[in-house]
Amino acid sequence: MDEFYGGGVYEEENFEFPLFKLVREKAEELDISYHDALVLVKPDYVRSCRYGDEEFEQKSIDEFEEISKQTMANWEAFMKEREGK
């Protein structure tokens, strides 16, 4: 049982959102609120998100649609099995 006491049976990594890290650092640097820091750092972060890159977006969506098709196929097989019981 010891492994359940802090042994990492279930442990999420200590994660910090990259955007919030920027916010926190800016707020500490300028001694301003997180809200005001967000207003300062967000525009650059937005620019790094490839908004408007239609080719990239379409590729990402196509990849997801493939997953969705497989998911639906799996579901139909599951329901068929349920109906057979």
Binding site: Y45, S48, R50, S60, I67
Partner: peptide, 12 residues
Amino acid sequence: HFNDVYQKRNEI
């Protein structure tokens, strides 16, 4: 399953 860019968009 979100790629890194979409994870960032999520933050926005």
